[in-house]
């Protein structure tokens, strides 16, 4: 993964009505990478993506996408970027084929029919090509949207929460498709809320309240969080959870089925508190790997503390 940078932006800042939504975000994505863009609602993910593809003008900051200046060359960037919007934004009163025809004409793809046919086939839409987009279910709409934004064979794909409201099987297929495209050299920046999707990315960038607060591979981010996890099994986990609450060195307590994940920063204090709590019960405690979700919840609560007053919401 040490190709040339596809996205290289620095200091991207954007505010709406005086509220800073994106605050000096630096982002660097290399060719062929799948980078996950994570963060709570209203953290500035969509705004950042929109600035990268020229839909919003940054208040300050600069950078290049595919070697083009994001401030002055957005026309050229648009030609080589596929952008999948968070909300389905193709024409519901057009059929799948008509929508793709429209897109093919906009990108001046010739011969148009071949491009459309190939794209329909690739995404398994051929049988439904004459169905109105408005009558499609969420998964099929998402597939149409993906088809429309990869048809012109872009070099960079920007996906804004592409799998929101899509069932697990369709999500799985969607991600298989993304990995296939990446293997062909396509670069992908994808925003998501789902942990399993984050774990399918080569790298993740975590943004909260407009600021990047963690980045790296999944193991790097987990290691960087400094969190330790102990899993408690057996016994009355609900009672143990109640006993653990508020004890020294305990950050998070989350039940996972019959298990209890207990997370803390200091392994010694964490272990002491857990030992105390399970003393006398038949529960077993042992250290385990910290999950990405625990890290994110930690990051989220931290950033809320820091930015409680300056939080900019609105643009997911």
């Amino acid at each position: 993964m040490n190709g040339e940078p596809v996205i290289a932006v620095e200091g991207l800042t954007k505010s709406f009505k005086g509220k800073v939504v994106v605050d000096h975000v630096d982002l660097s994505v290399k060719r062929g990478e799948i980078v996950g863009f994570l963060g709570p609602n209203g953290s500035g993910k969509t705004t950042t993506i929109r600035m990268i593809c020229g839909l919003l003008k940054p208040d300050s900051g600069s950078g290049e996408v595919l070697g083009y200046d994001i401030l002055t060359q957005s026309d050229l960037i648009k030609l080589e970027v596929g952008y999948m919007t968070q909300r389905f934004s193709f024409y519901e009163d057009l059929t799948i084929r008509e929508n793709l025809d429209f897109v093919a004409r906009l990108y001046a793809l010739e011969p148009r029919r071949d491009y459309v046919d190939r794209t329909l086939a690739r995404l398994g839409l051929t049988n439904r090509q004459n169905q109105l987009a408005g009558s499609l279910s969420g998964g099929w709409k998402q597939r149409l949207a993906l088809a429309a934004c990869v048809m012109h064979e872009p070099k960079l794909l920007l996906l804004d929460e592409p799998t929101a409201g899509v069932d697990p099987k369709a999500r799985r297929e969607f991600w298989d498709e993304i990995h296939e495209l990446a293997a062909e050299g396509l670069t992908v920046l994808v925003s998501t809320h789902y942990m399993d999707e984050a774990e399918r990315c080569h790298r993740i960038v975590y943004i909260a309240y407009g600021k990047v607060i963690a980045r790296g591979t999944v193991p790097e981010v987990i290691a960087g969080s400094g969190l330790h996890t102990i899993v408690v099994r057996g016994g009355d986990t609900a009672a143990i959870a109640r006993r653990l609450k508020g004890r020294d060195g305990i950050d998070q307590i989350a039940p996972f089925g019959n298990d209890l994940h207990v997370v803390g920063l200091d392994p010694n204090r964490l272990e002491r508190s857990v030992r105390d709590a399970i003393a006398g019960s038949d529960a077993v405690a042992e250290p385990d790997a910290t999950s990405l979700e625990d890290v994110f919840i930690r990051l989220m609560s931290q950033s809320t503390d820091n930015f409680a007053n300056g939080a900019g919401a609105g643009h997911g």
Partner: peptide, 21 residues
């Protein structure tokens, strides 16, 4: 090639795209 054509300042293809839609 398409990109070069699409990069032009005026493209009938794009006008036709919107018209047909």
């Amino acid at each position: 090639v398409a990109r070069r054509r699409a990069g032009r300042f005026f493209s009938w293809s794009r006008v036709v795209a919107v018209m047909a839609k």
